[in-house]
Design a protein around this nucleic acid. Structure first.
Lengths: 360, 360
DNA sequence: GTGAAAGCGCTAACAT
DNA sequence: ATGTTAGCGCTTTCAC
């Protein structure tokens, strides 16, 4: 419940008029100084600046927004805030926004559906100048509304069905392809995949890339080797256990994000297997913790920070009516080789020799 | 560089005046309807609402902010966005803000010092109605400025020197005390501590709690058992290695946050030691991943989400001129027992028997 | 219960 | 280079 009008808001402050009077000039001149306009004499500028400093004056952004029709605020609508992914994205978005003189308003979706309404309303109300949407999938109606209203928006890590709108993602499919080929190149043949939620577009793309690589090597996708995860660590753990039980001969696991890869390594170690000696683990994302695990995680780098930056750039183009920037963009992924992938063990299945089954 | 005035901003929309005309009434009546005022006849309200719906009208928040002197926006200034801690906090803050009809503007500090200036400027400019500050330490000048201007603010997880300002944290000292006593109760005597950065207040508090518990048990703090970490996973890993080398007889490690605890478990496993059979590990925070590690992490729960919620509550009181809420508040910590702590091994040092030194 | 009118503090023509 | 003035779209007295 909004508590509007409950009591007085901000304390009274100086206005541009007061500054003008004290400086013995007009409000427009003060405004010019405030906005760094060139057409003010040096001495006048200095005088005004002096008065401003002395009075400890600050402009009223609400008034400015009312006349300029710009709030200098961007919105960012995002779901699961807890993940490492979101942290990176936030950093990219905030950093880039700042460079454009913009601030970022955060809208979290929580668990409720249709929570995106708040952010869209804000955009429509002119509280923000543009909106960045991080959507796992669906949500077409919200997009349609924004499009109909012609308000600036950019979708992150998701591409709508045609007609395409402005979006920024990465080469998920090619990245998964490259990762899988890397594993194949090392000599692995039984490569398991722990996917993300099936209805997320990125999961589908990465699975397609995985399949591409197998096909290229003349192999088919083996259903026993594919498990659906939730992008959470626990799901990587349990999927790996199931995989180990069902397909003892596997020598590599490709987790479709780093968090699940960490869970997978946990499960492997727990089963008495060493990474990468017995089983190689490949992640996707290159989250900050990928470099902190032990062994460090080899992973397909998702340029999350750059995606955030790029999305802001596109949004700024729309806000400033610069042509272009309305088409989907995919930033390149890259393979980051660390310690968690190696040659497959000479003899398989090695599980038998390794012993130490853990408390399965 | 702000791109103000580069081109037209938002497209023209309906105004309250247009709605009034179409509904055959006055702007004030429309305003009353908009603000759910009771003094409007039912039929008039219905008529206005109809017109609003038909015209797809939305209020202009900038204009509203100008007259009410309220933007319905809160600021949140925070450093390291990548940590799990910040994700939890963001969720708490955003959720609580929403319940008050508020949105949250994010200000990240990045690496630059004095980056807090932007958020404070925003508060002073009336772009936000209040500011939440997450500060590791110091930053007294910023606080002083806010205090001098009488603008609403609340500090999170840090308590200023007297005169105290409004702040919300948790019982770090008591929590560390309880955690250490738990370990002592299990029979551990050689309990190592991996602290956070020495200049962070929370590090100091937790260290004091650790010392309290030892003192209570008639023990003194052993310098060899205390290592300074950075709250990052890697630092937990390296600190544990150093600890293992220096004090082979240690049977428990108390990491001052969960991230370092995870790094510690990694190092332990890498050295061929089982958790908790050979060494117990206790964390601090109860971050989401604490329940996802293997073994799951026993930890001192820091009510991060609640801290965020509580801070918002305090801020709202200030904004609404409700008395109180200007003193420091510490929310209670609690011990979450999971799997990573157990009895110390019967014979120590067990390292000798365990073998498998890893690639130290 | 409803309407008229006065701002909120700023920017941006337009004049000089 | 500087000043005058008309809004931006809303809320809010104050009349009626």
């Amino acid at each position: 419940m909004p508590e509007r009008g409950v009591a007085g808001g901000a304390p009274a402050r100086f206005t541009i008029r007061a500054i003008a009077q004290r400086a013995g000039t007009s409000v427009s001149t003060v405004s010019r100084v405030l906005n760094h306009r060139p057409d003010v004499s040096a001495e006048m500028r200095a005088r005004v600046l002096d008065v401003i400093a002395e009075a400890d004056y600050t402009v009223n952004d609400a008034a400015r927004a009312l006349t300029t029709r710009r709030t200098m605020m961007l919105g960012l609508l995002i779901g699961r805030l807890s993940s490492s992914y979101s942290g990176q994205l936030l950093r990219g978005v905030c950093g880039a926004a700042e460079e454009h003189g913009y601030n970022v308003v955060l809208y979290t979706m929580g668990d409720q559906p249709a929570q995106e309404e708040r952010s869209i309303r804000a955009l429509l109300h002119g509280q923000i100048d543009g909106l960045l949407l991080v959507l796992p999938g669906g949500m077409g109606s919200a997009i349609a509304q924004l499009r109909a209203r012609q308000r600036p928006f950019v979708i992150i890590d998701h591409r709508e069905a045609e007609p395409w709108g402005p979006s920024v993602g990465c080469t998920d499919r090619a990245g998964a392809d490259e990762g899988t080929r890397y594993l194949l190149g090392l000599g692995h043949r039984a490569i398991a995949a722990i996917t993300g939620p099936a209805d997320w577009q990125v999961s589908q793309e990465r699975l397609a890339g995985y399949r591409d690589a197998l096909a290229e090597a003349g192999m088919e996708l083996d259903d026993r080797l594919v498990r659906e995860g939730s992008f959470g660590q626990r799901s990587g753990f349990t999927a790996t256990r199931a995989l180990l039980a069902a397909v003892p001969e596997l020598t590599a696991i490709f987790a479709f994000n780093d968090t699940m890869a960490i869970g997978a390594m946990d499960a492997l170690k727990d089963a008495g297997l060493r990474v990468p000696r017995h089983v190689s683990v490949l992640g996707f994302g290159d989250f900050p913790e990928a470099a902190a695990t032990h062994p460090t995680l080899t992973t397909v780098r998702q340029p999350t920070l750059e995606i955030g930056r790029h999305a802001v750039g596109l949004l700024m183009r729309q806000i400033n009516n610069v042509p272009g920037g309305h088409e989907p963009v995919d930033l390149p992924t890259s393979l980051v080789q660390r310690e968690s992938c190696g040659l497959p063990p000479a003899t398989a299945p090695h599980r038998v020799a390794a012993g130490a089954p853990g408390h399965l």
